[in-house]
Design a protein around this nucleic acid. Sequence first.
DNA 1: ATCCTGAATGCTGCATTCACAATTCAGCTC
DNA 2: GAGCTGAATTGTGAATGCAGCATTCAGGAT
Lengths: 238, 238
Amino acid sequence: MKADVTAAEVTAAAALDDVPVVAEDIRIDRPTLHDVVVIRVRDMIIEGTLAAGSRIHEGQLGQQLGISRTPLREALKVLAREGLVDLVQGKGALVRKLTHKDVKDMLVVLSAMEDLAGKLACENASDSDIREVRRLHDAMMGYYAVRNRLPYYKLNQEIHSAFIRITGNEALSMVHTQLQARLKRIRFIGNEKPEHWDAAVADHEEMIAALEARDGPRLSRALSNHLAETWLRVADSI
Amino acid sequence: MKADVTAAEVTAAAALDDVPVVAEDIRIDRPTLHDVVVIRVRDMIIEGTLAAGSRIHEGQLGQQLGISRTPLREALKVLAREGLVDLVQGKGALVRKLTHKDVKDMLVVLSAMEDLAGKLACENASDSDIREVRRLHDAMMGYYAVRNRLPYYKLNQEIHSAFIRITGNEALSMVHTQLQARLKRIRFIGNEKPEHWDAAVADHEEMIAALEARDGPRLSRALSNHLAETWLRVADSI
DNA sequence: ATCCTGAATGCTGCATTCACAATTCAGCTC
DNA sequence: GAGCTGAATTGTGAATGCAGCATTCAGGAT
């Protein structure tokens, strides 16, 4: 997540040892075009603007985004590595179509990861970490109460990311983020039915309770259960 | 490894029953330059040709490889996503230096993945899958008997990949491959000491035995144990 | 009428070029 | 002599250009 910062810290630490690293994130972040494009195109895939199975025309899309083909091509290479598009020789990029099996496989792996995350999170979480998650959770519940789906959805994502983040395991965070990105499209479609919503909320109540009790196995169970229900939620929308 | 063949066989078998499935992979594979470069540069990092922490000069390396900067840059973007290099704004690519924590974190995740793999492999493996792994195992043991380290090392890698492949879970395979790639450099350095070799071999005996017995929990335990020892093996070579 | 051949078009893959940011070093000031 | 300023150099970031492969459609042969 903070790869760039790390590099900067390394440099700074190497160069000037005793200068306090205030850094203070006043730095102007000027992301490379290619990075912006990765995010943008990924969102377009998730939101369905680029339909699954459709071909991505470099010149055309580049023009739409107002950029040249070069950064777009670099972005497509990255997205291919993430599994969101397929790069076919001589044909360019196709938006990947996920099969039932693909999704199920991913959920199985994700489940194993969250199982691990539950354990690690309970070991590693600071009190302020837990308070932070609680804060997100309560905010989310606020939106649930008034049935405001979109902000609920965003906070939901944030909470899951937070669980992973407070494990302090960057490798875990990385692979988890990657799988989540691929599944986001599916969740985006499948999360419509209100009858599942209550169940999901109940899971979340259990999760936060387990975390506050720092009960690793219980948290793992809650997370696994949540994912199992996710499968039911999305299974028929693929 | 032969995922394409499998898919082709399925299709062919379904479509035309009595037409001999010649198919025969006569296809000319003409990988894109960018793909070749990814592999090549990754190997250079693993083998230490590109030292950890050093800066990758695009023009220079491009010239050495006899290619232009474009495919090289695309490759670097991919390697950055894999976590093998850091891309710093305006400075280009730095070969990522792994800390103790990085490696340990990765091994923890890898362990969880192999735990899952053990379970799935025992459920999914066909008899021929198991025979294949046994074949690899025996060949590896042959090299162990005569202390021929390099082919032993390669077969070792292949066996671990085979375990993952026969789970039939592509998401798992992907995540595993990625983490393995990042760790390869470390293993490459750390796998020198002969005193650990015997222990590793013993682990492998247990692994193949568990697989042949289709005993999932036992296989998971063997794999985990193997990774735990890996940590000891490599811990001081970072 | 159908199938095959081959030319034309369009798009990808890679190279080259252009623009701009970072670094370095020389010259000036204090 | 030390430190700062600014110009020159070097290297990255992005755009454009060019060659070759893939697809398509027209024309001819069977």
